[in-house]
């Protein structure tokens, strides 16, 4: 009895040890955002002043609400673009036979594997050319296009799992091809759409590199850029403020994840077939 208990306890003990640093970091983040000062990992005193950015603008910074709105708009529009386009291309790749289909499929994979950092300079020129440099729209387009290959591939996997018979039945029952897609196929891959949307939104919300490089004006910043500026632009880093903003940044993600993790797991069970 005792031996069995010890046996079951061992994995938990191991997991606790491994996750402890992460838990401690989040705990510290939470506590120090309400602390007057911290020494090492130990916070002292209680204050709300670290959270002052919520009601008064920071020096030389745009309002936090403006930045949050930017981040939200960025993540949402990227999600809509990515899911919309991936649902259409994924369907085409799954169902239609057209010249170059195989090539297109392998290209999507290659594009996905391509490190986007190497494209930064080229993208800069393209954005300049299109007068989209330093605009939210420009970065949204860049982010969405970089995410599309993987999104398309995932959506194709979900479409592959919908039986052809259902589609044929819909065509015979009186649907056009588009209506079949919209009213019969899409409702059946709703879990896939949900999973990809969440995935895209989280990825958009936490995107740092693209906004940091291509958005220079104050008013276009996103939250991740703000955090970078908080570290970089002050002579003395205000750790209290930094932790509060950091916490503010991850709260929506936490809530989002808690409510949607069931769908998120679908992305791995949906599967991809060539």
């Amino acid at each position: 009895m005792l031996i069995r208990r010890i046996k079951t306890a061992i994995p938990y003990a191991l997991l606790t040890v491994i996750t402890a640093p992460i838990i401690v970091s989040y705990g510290w983040l939470f506590m120090s955002s309400f602390a007057k000062r911290t020494e090492g990992l130990k916070p002292y005193g209680f204050t709300l002043s670290n959270w002052r950015f919520l009601w008064e603008p920071l020096p030389n910074m745009p309002s936090i609400w403006r930045i949050t709105a930017n981040t939200l708009a960025f993540a949402l529009v990227v999600t809509i673009l990515e899911v919309g386009i991936a649902a259409a291309t994924g369907y085409a790749l799954s169902r239609l036979h057209f010249p170059g289909r195989r090539g297109f499929l392998s290209l999507t994979l290659i594009l996905h594997a391509f490190p986007s950092v190497t494209l930064l300079i080229a993208i800069f020129y393209i954005l300049r050319l299109l007068h989209l440099y330093d605009t939210l729209l420009g970065v949204i387009l860049v982010k969405a296009s970089l995410e599309l290959p993987l999104g398309t591939w995932i959506m194709k996997g979900f479409f592959d799992n919908v039986s052809w018979d259902i589609e044929m039945a819909a065509l015979i029952d009186g649907c056009s091809r588009f209506r079949t897609w919209w009213q019969v196929i899409i409702p059946n891959i709703r879990p896939g759409i949900a999973a990809l949307s969440i995935f895209a939104f989280l990825s958009g919300w936490s995107e740092f590199l693209l906004p940091y490089i291509f958005l220079t004006s104050f008013n276009n910043w996103t939250l991740s850029v703000l955090i970078k500026r908080l570290i970089g632009d002050f002579r003395f880093v205000d750790y209290g403020l930094l932790t509060a903003v950091g916490l503010f940044y991850i709260i929506p993600v936490l809530f989002f994840f808690i409510f949607t993790q069931e769908y998120l797991l679908n992305i791995y069970t949906g599967g991809v077939k060539g």
Partner: peptide
């Protein structure tokens, strides 16, 4: 197919699951 005035029954039934 939709203009042919036909009805079809499939082996897999092909009912709309949703």
């Amino acid at each position: 197919p939709k203009d042919r005035d036909i009805g079809m029954v499939f082996q897999s039934y092909a009912l709309y699951p949703h």
